[in-house]
Design a protein around this nucleic acid. Structure first.
Lengths: 127, 127
DNA sequence: TTATGTACTTACAGAAAAGATAGTATAAAG
DNA sequence: CTTTATACTATCTTTTCTGTAAGTACATAA
């Protein structure tokens, strides 16, 4: 019996963890998700400021994909200048244990790399 | 105070979960790690057979990167024709809870996508 | 001497992801 | 009537990732 290949947004996957990686993979998505989890409701411009290196195009693109995948809610206010707020949906929030376990392992791995000495930086994880 | 940007293999990261994604991200690495966790010690050619879609170049490349990053051990026997066995190192094994949580969320997300009905396929997760 | 098996390597091509840069829409304020 | 603020949108270029196809090494067997 052949393996069943499933599809998500035009990409094939076989395992559940591959599906997860299809949804949260990429350079910016986990950061966006983490920031939304931390700050709950964030305007587009605020998100940009929290991620100094991202371009507007990339931020828009990633947010739209996360919205299309059901992880992020987009609330548009009909005002000028525009106001748009982003927040996590329930399924988006349910991702947090995954990000937590990835963070925990990242800590462990950095210790492994640098022999027990963790580089203390100020990443997005700090407020 | 500016954020500290850390580096791993020439790539910048700020958060621990980004580091994790740098190590296990990509199309093939989580599958390789999962198969090694499941089957413990696997020869190159066996791995290939377990992953019918991968090319030799890709398999070699991913294995070498995982080895360089300390997750995979490579045991070369000095025989002809060659025999090489791959297995997980302790830090490689410590990744399994992460893959588990990714798998759990993948299940949940598929239910979310298809309204409670999970597609039952035969992926790498089945023996 | 030729064929076989196994684990690669190398050079190139194509696809996908990310980045740079400039432009758009709109109401209100001056 | 020009400027301002905010959230995009469009086009193009660059970089990175993945795949294709062919070749290499070498002890042993026939």
């Amino acid at each position: 019996m052949p393996c069943t290949i499933k599809e998500f947004n035009g990409k094939e996957y076989k395992c559940f963890f591959e599906l997860t990686l299809l949804v949260i993979g990429g350079k910016w998505k986990p950061i966006i998700l983490y920031l939304l989890f931390r700050d709950k409701v964030v305007r587009f411009g605020e998100l940009r400021k929290k991620m100094p290196e991202i371009t507007e195009r990339m931020l828009t693109k990633q947010l739209r994909e996360l919205e299309a995948d059901g992880l992020v809610h987009r609330e548009v206010y009909k005002v000028v200048p525009p106001k748009v707020e982003y927040s996590l949906t329930p399924i988006g929030e349910s991702l947090m244990p995954v990000l937590d376990s990835m963070r925990d392992w990242g800590v462990e791995y950095e210790e492994f790399l640098y022999g027990g000495e963790v580089l203390k930086g100020e990443g997005y994880e700090k407020k």
